[in-house]
Amino acid sequence: MHKTAVKKVVMEGVLDANDSLAKANREDFDRAGNFVVNMMSSPGAGKTALLEKTLEHLRGDPRLGVLEGDVQTTLDADRLARFHVPIIQVNTDSGFGGECHLDANMVRSGISELPLSDIDVLVIENVGNLVCPAEFKVGEDARVMVYSITEGEEKPLKYPLMFRSADLVIVNKIDLLEHLDFDLEQFLGNLDDVNPGVPRILASARAGEGIEEWCGWLRKKSGSTEPAT
């Protein structure tokens, strides 16, 4: 026996395995008629607070379900439990020191425990992180970024991968604008530099600003109508 060097042409996308699982998720979502949002942000931008306000406002029209991704703990799912909507928490800490994002496979294991046919809109709350989640499709229809103005104006330029992939940017904590040196115009200019014209909603999950507009966006996207009054 002797050893020979061989070359093998592979031409395989590094994330192909993830992307085919994302496609399988997407097929399940489409079959169940779900509109699926992949919600991304840095830690503490207010995703869970926004979801609380969203659930208060929507009151079941459309019917929301939530998949919570976190490295550890069920704190976020516990916060949303009072709304009695389908929630599943996926912890990512089985990976190498805890994965910093949800991938299609983790979402796949989570949705097997969710009653998809009882859900109109599924919000996948990704792990708080401005980089990794952007690489991994999970089968979503839309990517929504929650950005808080306490993070500064320059982040779209520093983290263009995620900002470029967003279909909607919710600019949160806008009630703090008068207390900060944050330059909103400059931030929106930076946002347009990386993702020209991306829809944006100025919001405050605390004070309620923009919640109506965000819920309107969700209703429109999911094909649901306003409740009759």
Binding site: A5, K8, V10, M11, G13, V14
Partner: peptide, 25 residues
Amino acid sequence: GSKLEILTGEELMVEYLEMEEETAD
């Protein structure tokens, strides 16, 4: 103009491998 179609720059691909193979003499 800003209406661009990205031609290259989004690649993330394993193009080829080099390996050692044991063959009978």
